[in-house]
Simulated assay, not measured.
Amino acid sequence: MIQLIGLKKGLDLSIREKLSTRKSHYEYYLKNLLEFCAEAVIISTCNRTEIYFNCERYDDTIVHNIFKVFGWDNDLKEYTFHSKGHDVIKHLMEVVSGFHSKILGEDQILGQVKEAYSYSLKESAVSAELHRLFQEAITCGKEFRTEARMYDIPVSSSSIVVNYGLQHGIKNFMVIGYGEIGSLAVKYLLSSNVSKVYIVVRDPKKIVDLHDKRVHIIGFKDKNEIIEEVECIISCTSAPHYVIKREDIPKEKKLLIFDLAVPRDVEESLAKYPNIELLDIDTISKIDDKNKKLRAERMDSCRGIIKNHIDAYEEWRKLREITPYIKKLKMVSAEVSKDRINTFIHKSSSKNHQELAKKLIKSTSDFYINRAIETLKEAKLEGSEEQCLRIIEKIFRIN
């Protein structure tokens, strides 16, 4: 049974960060989830933590076990929801299409879902229903973005913070972290009229794809010396601790700081200082961009795509239930074929080949026709011949 444990909508960042996950621990998480689940996929972003899993049981014990795997406080269960079956399928299709993102229609979630699925696939944590569900969902997300022409109006937390900074006349930026969000922020910055972009990473030598003279790549140990030179910091690491503290900022230094991380990168007390404007991911998502209404209209007009992919998956799942019977039918067919082939091999040397082939082909046909006739007779005596007759007509294409 496909199930999902996720975060309820509208939760404060202080709660979400307590229910976040560490990507460096995914291997450990999946290994332990597979102790009591058949499959599992972990999606963790700044807005959501969602655990998709396939398990026969659906009760509080499952929730308790999952909380234990992630080391979450049981008192936080009230902030989560637990779904199964069709509700999970519908939710994931809407997620990949951007309906559940804090920034409506943002263009990063599909990539994040693909990354989560790919990691579980690499760790052999998906093999059946979740495997097919995520394939269908990713296809849905791609089709949705194409049909809704979301590429005309791309939006993400990275694009919003860069535009906000540029609108305030900022020219010198520092980007801390160069993962998906950080690299996207740098891309937007370099496509604009900025003077300098400092990129802070643990190992500067690993970034070899940037050759713009405005870019300066530095290590964490050097960032505090450079803060004096910038007007804006965009922080988006996956660190479990603060990477910017009060003592890191020079006194009276005027600074705009965007904290795109969950858990947070920046010490919250910095927001109290009049010379510092600190915006976390929740505040950023409330910044109204001019294309929000257009995205909503386009997305609503394409909801039919989501329904089509939900139906396609549900159809696959229903047909999967008869797979054991299909295997048995093929086994019967193989036995009948093997019996006729053996007969042909044994008698072909002493009989006319054409006559022998005719007899064996008729014998094979008679095997199935006679079984159909016997079944129809049994159904007649049981009073269910009409349904049986319709099935036989479909199988043998009787007009």
Rank of each mutant, 00 (worst) to 15 (best):
I226E: 07
A296V: 03
I227V: 15
E314K: 07
M174K: 10
G6Y: 03
I109Y: 08
D339A: 12
V69C: 07
I62Q: 06
E225H: 07
F173N: 04
S349W: 02
A38C: 08
D152S: 08
D280K: 07
T146R: 07
K206Q: 07
K102Q: 15
E378K: 14
S238L: 08
D259E: 15
M93K: 04
L11Q: 15
I103S: 02
Y325D: 09
G219Q: 02
K377C: 03
V194C: 13
I153W: 00
E78G: 11
I287W: 04
E355Y: 07
D288W: 00
K290E: 14
R145F: 02
H131K: 15
K9G: 14
V194A: 06
H91V: 09
L190Q: 05
H91L: 10
F220H: 03
S365L: 13
H86N: 10
L76A: 06
S44Q: 05
E277Y: 06
S384Q: 08
L319S: 07
T61A: 04
F396I: 06
C232H: 05
R371G: 14
K77W: 00
K18C: 10
K245D: 05
I62F: 00
S384D: 10
A261G: 13
L11G: 09
H64G: 10
I42R: 01
E115C: 07
I398R: 12
L166H: 06
D265V: 13
H168Q: 12
E314M: 12
N54V: 04
R303G: 10
D300F: 08
L255I: 13
E123Q: 15
S156W: 00
Y52G: 07
S333V: 11
V194T: 12
L278Y: 03
G219I: 01
K272M: 09
V69G: 06
E385H: 10
